[in-house]
Design a protein around this nucleic acid. Structure first.
Lengths: 217, 217
DNA sequence: CGCGGCTTTGATGTTCATCAAGTAAAGTGG
DNA sequence: CCACTTTACTTGATGAACATCAAAGCCGCG
């Protein structure tokens, strides 16, 4: 396993933790964690891409965040709740690594470095979720669309052309607007020469200006 | 110190941690933590009420959350960042308790129970922030106002009449709407007999219906 | 007293959701 | 493999929700 994963934990400790590691395959669309399930495992993403979602009382889905490889999938609640209050769904074919939660806890109890690394990782993850949500909240439609395009280009694919891993609906569920307006805005960006669109293929033509839109509407 | 504070830590360990505890007085409006400051201390709230805010690039304030006594004030970023990416401001006269961050980290390193308790507390706090933000995002104006009224009534004051600790502007900054619309909605609730308003004094007359509005607009 | 901040109300315009309707794409069963 | 159904995508028209602008009252404070 990666020394990337836990910076200050020695190899043998890590191996000890991962003795009972299980890998699980998930195909696109599959539910990895179901909101309401008891939290018994500690899960991280090895490959693929997943979304964390919440189903509201009106049965609408809200996307909380996306996770890429080596992010924890059990990001939050794991150490503070008995049940998941969110679902995790694969948006690409994915592989997760699963550790027994009690075992992870036991190790954290006995190994301060492991505990601290864990804390660091969890804290980083939740920080990003919070800050990102605040960022999205302050923007309006165009800014939000620009934001998510730049997010995929920079954080996920590190390229200016990429295949959108999410549907228009999912974008809408992430930024908190309607599908129609997501589409309208994408079309507008296309007409304005900011991006090219071929179905799910996106090519960012004018990153500077997209950045501008993301910042100041 | 409270055994409330850390459930699984023995008294002498706790006393050891708190040897260098400093208490600090803050009067209403005072800045306790300034966004951008280096994180050197671990802070929790002993009495009073504070708000966590973020100043956006357009110099507008967004309120991330409120914290009540025995909440950590250094809620997030403490274990994942060198600098605060939010400010903390007293909205009532408050007393904070300040521990040296390095010392807290050292204890977490050496005492698994302490580390786990810390993790639990941090995780609980960030969970609430995330879930609350998602809740607010899915509602519209009326629902958001109802939500915050119930929040103060239930979580902070545990009573149906209370003095609003925040200005209309601050409510606006929390729910992400304008001051004018906050006021208009409060007036509407008053006219509809849901609440009474005398300046900052709020009396909730029809909690059931307010709940209804919070849930379904 | 007068100034600045907080509150309130009204009028107007912008942003966005909703509804409707149609095309394209993708899965499904015979 | 084709007809069939469903799901995703797209555009336009309309109305609702909300921001913005303007103006005035209130209150605490130097």
């Amino acid at each position: 396993m990666q020394s990337l994963f836990f910076a200050h934990v020695t190899k043998d400790v890590l191996e000890d933790i991962c003795v009972h590691k299980i890998e699980r395959q998930h195909s696109k669309g599959e539910t990895i964690i179901q909101q309401g399930d008891p939290i018994k495992e500690f899960i991280y993403l090895k490959s693929g891409l997943v979304k964390l979602i919440r189903t509201t009382s009106e049965n609408k889905d809200q996307i909380i965040s996306f996770s890429k490889p080596f992010d924890f999938v059990s990001v939050f609640s794991v150490f503070s709740s008995e049940y998941y209050n969110y679902s995790v769904i694969a948006i690409d074919d994915s592989i997760t690594c699963i550790l027994d939660l009690e075992e992870v806890k036991r190790h954290a109890l006995n190994n301060g470095h492991f505990a601290m690394d864990l804390m660091y990782r969890m804290s980083t993850a939740t920080d990003h979720i919070i800050i990102d949500n605040m960022e999205i909240r302050k923007k309006q439609l165009k800014g939000r669309i620009a934001h998510i395009l730049l997010y995929f280009a920079r954080n996920i694919y590190k390229a200016n052309n990429f295949e959108l891993p999410v549907s228009r609906r999912e974008i809408a569920e992430y930024i908190g607007m309607t599908v129609e307006n997501v589409i309208r805005t994408l079309s507008e960006f296309r007409k304005d020469g900011l991006i090219k669109i071929y179905g799910k293929e996106i090519l960012i033509l004018n990153e500077k200006f997209l950045e501008e839109v993301s910042e100041h509407g």
